[in-house]
Design a protein around this nucleic acid. Structure first.
Lengths: 275, 275
DNA sequence: TTGCATTTGTACGTATGTATC
DNA sequence: GGATACATACGTACAAATGCA
């Protein structure tokens, strides 16, 4: 509980490092309350804002949860695993893994909207159509008990979908989305591409996920094309960054060349060749 | 260039939002210099630290680069795309996409080290061996011109690797890593699993990638097992978060069941079913 | 219910250090 | 060396949320 003024590290970083080590080392158990910021301030002999800065860092890292008026608490550090989009199509067509029962999926909106930014670009880039087109969007939330853990939206071209179709109702489907889309439109899914990145949560996402608006999220952009190469669906999905991880499991191709589902390389960029 | 004191948003967030909109809207071009912080401070009529807070936010988001003594500059917003691990094994065994010429891969270390945390757990969890075992590690850096864009490490069990093998030299291999490992050990790669998350850069990573230590990175943990199910390689890789994205492209399984490389579901967690 | 003390969150003004030009 | 610009810290002040008497 002491900072070293001669160190090249800032006092706030030194304090953050010490608290981090104590949390990860088990000195503070998950759910336990840390000393208050004024108490830490006195303990380290620094200004209050210096401690506050360290706390801010650890909160962004996901180690701490701060409750104004109450205190600063250690968060449960276990990471929540989600499967990559590839998994949603299953091993063979039609198979689809069931969710554990404690998860509830809520489709809280279904209707026509103007897509923004990435989604419009994903639709417009391939189809060449007017980028201002309105699309059918289905917004969903995945809840674990009380805690929202995933928020997403699926964007579809409304053309060819019957007016009374289940896709237009704000209810969970009784089958995977892509099967419902295939049934409604008669088009077939052919290929898909995922793009994963990290960014800060938008105000909407922060509110839905009940996280602070300046915390990072893992964001996925999923683009599915039909057998003619036309975009049939664009989906976005995001998770609280520091407490989530995406997983992908697969077989390494055998010596005999076989269909393995790889397509042409993406944009100019680096390859992941861990040599 | 005005803040609204009656708004529920903080002044610093209001300023960040305005600057963000101006940058994304094109009012400030990439590479262009923003007004200095004292100038913005006077323009908004707030304290200097309030503007500094907004600048900090935008820097973490990757929109700005700040150079002490020089100024605040708009960063090129284009995202760099990297392929997921799946791509490294190619469509069929032996095929491997070449890197664009402007990328240089530097293997800056190869030797025996004690793995830490995630890596040891990945090795130990499956093999059940002592978690304190030393491993062969190959550390690499991918450089685009002057800018490092990827830093990673491959961890291998040193047993069964000849003393004069290329894997022990700190040089880039002339073939994909997994092929070299198979040749050196006689073991065959069977399955692999990736895990993607976001976290803050470690001091080492920040220095290698030339980013600030408090910026988020995309981190990948790659676990490869041989045909007997034993862990044969664990690799880590990380990219500057806000300026990178990972891509994965694949075919949706056809109606006839065929080998597609999916394995059993991972841990308890949510499925990515964008219904 | 009311009132008060505690705690977090943010801002202000000032000061100092360091890097760049 | 001097001016400029970013980075951090200090001390103070106030608002909002919480919890308790």
């Amino acid at each position: 509980m002491r900072i070293n003024p001669g160190s090249p590290e800032n006092p706030s970083r030194q304090i953050a490092a010490q608290l981090r080590a104590q949390i990860l080392g088990g000195s503070y158990q998950p759910g336990e309350r840390l000393p208050s910021i004024p108490a830490l301030t006195e303990g380290y002999g620094v200004a209050k804002q210096t401690v506050q800065r360290a706390i801010d860092q650890l909160r962004i890292e996901g180690l701490l949860v701060t409750k104004p008026g109450s205190g600063t608490y250690v968060r449960a550090t276990r990471r929540r695993l989600s499967r990559l989009s590839r998994g949603r199509y299953g091993t063979v067509r039609g198979y689809h893994a069931a969710l554990p029962v404690r998860y509830r999926r809520r489709v809280y909106f279904a209707g026509i909207e103007q897509p923004s930014g990435d989604v419009a670009h994903a639709f417009g880039a391939a189809s060449g159509a007017a980028s201002g087109a309105s699309l059918l969007v289905r917004r969903h939330l995945l809840v674990d008990g009380e805690q929202p853990v995933e928020v997403g939206a699926a964007w579809l071209s409304p053309g060819g979908i019957p007016r009374d179709d289940a896709l237009l109702r704000a209810e969970a489907l009784d089958q995977p989305l892509y099967q419902a889309v295939e049934e409604a439109t008669g088009r077939r899914y052919g290929t898909a591409a995922d793009q994963i990145t990290t960014r800060l949560a938008t105000p909407d996402e922060a509110q839905l996920l009940r996280i602070r608006p300046d915390t990072p999220v893992l964001a996925l952009l999923h683009i599915a094309r039909d057998t003619h190469g036309d975009v049939i669906e664009v989906s976005t999905c995001c998770w609280p960054g520091p407490t989530s991880a995406l997983t992908d499991e697969y077989q390494v191709p055998g010596p005999t060349p076989g269909q393995h589902g790889e397509l042409t390389p993406p944009e100019p960029g680096s390859d992941l060749t861990l040599a």
